[in-house]
Amino acid sequence: MSERLSDEDLLAFLETRLPVDDWNGVRLRPLPVSYTSRFWWLDTPGRVYVVKEFFPGNEENPVYPTLPHQEADALSVLSRHALSPDLEAFAQSPVGTPLLVYGYASPGSFEIGVGEAAELIGRFAALKERVPGHITVPSGWHEVLESGDAMLAAIPESRKAANLKRLRPADSEVKRTAPVRSLVHRSFCLGTILATGEGARLIDWQFAGLGDPVEDIVCFVSPGLAMLYGLHPLVADVEEMFLEHYPDQETVGRFAQERSAYHWRLAAYCLFRHETLSHINAPAARAYGRALEEEVDLLLRLRGR
């Protein structure tokens, strides 16, 4: 869409959708823009709303396709289990873009501990209720490596791709087994955990899919993903604390065995994005380049163990 959604039009639209008694005292404030979405924060007495407008044209990403309906489907189920904020609205904006609104009680504190994060994602991984409408994503050592191979094949002229192929873990390192399939968040980090008046909640479900919970552990400890979210990579003792607090230690064991495949695939993704964005979005390309360096450094450390 070429037409930009104005704050005035958005506020008028929200007045028809949200159960706010008195609109005279509300405050709408734009938040930082991500690669795929614009955000606003709507402050009302006792309750906060976050408004998310999805940019079109991001549905074909090879690892993280942006699928607004998946976020709406996830929020509608997970909020009942105290895992996400409440879905307040999901509709087409006045300019035709997908618009999603979630709400939560105003928090007393904005601090979230690593142990609380581990407990939250562990409860999510143990959830038995199925969430409809989600894509199937690569699960386990072999499917993840094949996903990385496909991205590098799409940038055959890249000299960095040839170097990254030398770091590829071997298929034979892990025995091929039936893939694990459950809902995974796929971009889990401290930047996707929201402090609310009712406790920590998970946000940003547009990349979710049916895969292996190991991926969510990998995302939380990934230095490249942390940098893309504007966070500092975790130090070693914080990573250890997270793994100790994660409720399912069998999943932690598979993470220890298979993490290098996921980190290598994430490095391949960062390189793919770095190469394909270099001529159309130089700042984003540089950000992916820095994230690539972080993932490569981690792969080298894992090799040296």
Results as ranks from 00 to 15, higher is better:
Pro138Met: 12
Glu129Asp: 14
Ala91Cys: 07
Trp40Asp: 10
Arg305Trp: 07
Asp216Phe: 09
Glu59Asp: 09
Ser106Asn: 03
Asp212Pro: 06
Phe55Ile: 05
Asp171Phe: 08
Glu8Val: 15
Leu266Gln: 03
Ser222Ala: 03
Ala162Leu: 13
Glu116Thr: 11
Ser187Trp: 00
Pro85Glu: 00
Leu228Asn: 04
Leu164Pro: 07
Leu120Thr: 12
Glu250Val: 02
Thr16Val: 09
Leu5Cys: 06
Leu190Val: 14
Glu60Tyr: 00
Ala178Gly: 03
Leu164Asn: 06
Leu14Asn: 01
Val214Arg: 09
Pro223Met: 02
Met1Val: 10
Pro85His: 07
Gly148Trp: 04
Leu231Ile: 00
Val184Ser: 14
Trp141Tyr: 13
Glu53Lys: 13
Ala261Tyr: 04
Val296Cys: 08
Ala256Lys: 15
Pro32Arg: 04
Pro98Ser: 09
Glu215Val: 14
Phe220Cys: 00
Cys270Gln: 13
Leu271Ala: 03
Ala118Gly: 07
Ala200Phe: 15
Val63Gly: 01
Pro45Gly: 02
Ala195Glu: 07
Tyr49Gln: 11
Val238Ile: 04
Tyr102His: 15
Glu239Val: 14
Glu294Thr: 10
Arg166Trp: 00
Tyr229Arg: 11
Val252Leu: 12
Gly113Thr: 13
Phe188Ser: 10
Leu292Ser: 04
Gly133Cys: 11
Gly113Pro: 06
His263Glu: 15
Ile135Gly: 13
Tyr49Trp: 13
Arg273Ile: 02
Val238Ser: 08
Phe90Pro: 04
Glu119Ile: 05
Ser278Asn: 02
Ala105Met: 02
Lys52Met: 06
Phe110Tyr: 07
Cys270Ser: 14
Phe54Asp: 00
Val296Leu: 06
Leu234Pro: 01
Tyr269Asn: 03
Arg273Pro: 01
Leu202Gly: 06
Asp86Val: 01
Gly199Gln: 03
Arg168Lys: 09
Pro94Phe: 00
Ala12Asp: 10
Phe272His: 11
Lys52Phe: 08
Arg166His: 03
Val235Gln: 09
Asp204Tyr: 06
Gly140Met: 12
Gln249Arg: 15
Leu152Asn: 01
Ala236Glu: 12
Pro132Thr: 01
Asp237Lys: 10
Arg286Tyr: 14
Thr66Leu: 10
Phe110Asp: 12
Ser147Leu: 08
Arg303Gln: 15
Ala154Thr: 13
Thr66Ile: 11
Arg186Ala: 10
Thr192Gln: 14
Ser222Glu: 08
